[in-house]
Write a protein that binds this DNA or RNA. Sequence first.
DNA 1: TATATCTCCTGCGGGC
DNA 2: TGCCCGCAGGAGATAT
Length: 288
Amino acid sequence: MPELPEVEVVRRGLHEHVLGATIESVQVLHPRAVRRHEPGPRDLALQLTGQTVAAVQRRGKYLWLVLEPADVALVVHLGMSGQMLVQPPSVPDEKHLRIRAVLDNGADLRFVDQRTFGGWALAPLVEIDGDLLPVPVSHIARDPMDPRFDADAVVNILRGKHTEIKRALLDQTVVSGVGNIYADESLWRAELHGNRITDTLSRPKLRAVLAAAREVMGEALAQGGTSFDALYVNVNGESGYFDRSLDVYGQENRPCSRCGAAIRREKFMNRSSYSCPRCQPRPRVRRA
DNA sequence: TATATCTCCTGCGGGC
DNA sequence: TGCCCGCAGGAGATAT
């Protein structure tokens, strides 16, 4: 599932392969892939045609292409299964090809998305806290890999909330880029159960979980991201290797690499959470 | 206002 | 073999 490291791998690939390219034509093959572009598929195709990719940027799990001369952003979210592929036109269409942009450098930029949670949208850029961001990204907090990420400020936000720490880690307006996999890995490294309540946790403990998030996502990025199946790939269609380094996510009943206890799986927010019952004890009082 | 839950979507795998 | 159901989960919408 694409979280920050996987999206950053894609961003780097796009920077290498599409920066400076001009879009010659666009085909939207599935309207749901552009549902966040309110004027509709035809407008998106029309506005993209003739635009040149001036930059490829990312915040959290969002990435965007800055387009000139219109000076707008093509905002891309991969959702759960989205892929941005740079392919020669001779490569047959992928089964779940949703959008194709033909570039003047002889390549296709393809958006492939099995579960259609992702999509493309055009948006103006606005200045937020010294950064130029597309409007749909303006509410997204800085991610832990951002050079201007302020861990102390995030600790203060967490201390001011009364919610479970895992829920807060997944809230992209608090800290971005963290999804279910890296939330579990970060909490395991910080030896915290995801149901612990934020305003009961010490500042050092909150700093530790943020540091763990930065650390684990940095390691994943160095290995090209995490992949469990063919759903996450880089722009060349290759998978990362970090799934081989996960300590808890997907490790149910396997021994904890720190203490040997069997990793447990629990339901949380309608999804699976993995943790070590010994290193990460449940809070004594659980909320209803 | 803050927090919690629901909903969208498709393909795979297990059970019958 | 084929059908049904649960599961995977990001993020906006809706409910509390």
